[in-house]
Amino acid sequence: MRPTYTIGFLEVDSYHQVLVRSMVSRAAASLSATWDIAETPKADVVIHGPRAAAKNASGRLNVRLCGQGEISNNPQDLPAPLRLSALLEMLKRAEADFVNTVGVSKAPQIQAAPQAPPVIHETAARTGMLILGETILKSLASQKPGIIKVLCRDREALWIDLRRRAFAAPYALNEMPEDADAIRLEIIAVSADTASPVPTPGTSLDRLLWHVGLRAGAGKPAPWVNPAKRYKLKYWPNFSELPHSITHMNLVARFGSEALTADDASLRCGVDIATVINTMNALTLMGLLNENNGVEIRRLQTVTQPEQVSRVGGLIGRFKSKFGW
């Protein structure tokens, strides 16, 4: 049976309480116990604020939130800023400890964290979609982006003019086969005055990149995405022109507010990893996600009203049920 444990707070500000609450609900699928928030500081796990006195430890397990800018070597401390991964790791350790110490009332001490095994993401098969994506990227990155002719079985050619970031398809994109055998690509070298095979205005290349990117890896990372790296959104795709789901929108918004790995994003949004990776494959192909190499990005917003966190979440939930998203 699934055990239920509680989390309590001791001198933790309301922002962090709300943050923990929302992180716990998003992490629920990855935990083996049900975690409830206790209204009192008497709980299985008690999270202490940076300045709470250690002697007031009242939980089976007591952990401390580091203050802003504080570096701590204590494995029982939760680093600041609080990250979902750190909280999740702590709760998993607590679950393991509690199972081994059933009925023991004294607060067990957390052992030094055993390193979580790294998540291995298999690489994607080389399908026609993946090769097309790679070919487009290579040409876009070259000095002279050119023209690509895409031949699918016995269909008329689909033309891509990368100089104009436009394409023309003689059929609907979802009629395009995805396997490597069915797609043949011809890369056509161009000079400045080479006439475009794509009639003006053509369809925006983004439409094609979104389509190809979502399918290129079939749930596995395409070669242009490293799922272990953190990515940050450069800007939003023009969703009014792209067939999308509410999940895509949720993911895009998250990547817009912080740099995330595929696993981070999956936890944050409560979305399966395959969908996250497909979306990352597409956004990266479109040039909308940047690898975050520890570049400092200053967030000007320093104060968040905690009530807003749950308020918007609830509102989105009601929109979802109203419109059946």
């Binding site: 922002y15 943050l19 929302s22 800023p81 609080l82 990250r83 940050k232 929108m249 949720n250 895009v252 918004a253 998250r254 817009g256 507010s257 912080e258 740099a259 944050r268 975050n292 520890g294 400092e296 990005i297 200053r298 967030r299 917003q301 320093t302 968040t304 009203q305 807003q308 966190v309 918007v312 979440g313 989105i316």
Partner: peptide
Amino acid sequence: FNIQAQSEAPMEDVA
């Protein structure tokens, strides 16, 4: 979604 993501992102100087 944008408001939600912004308000739930951990407060941090280095993103």
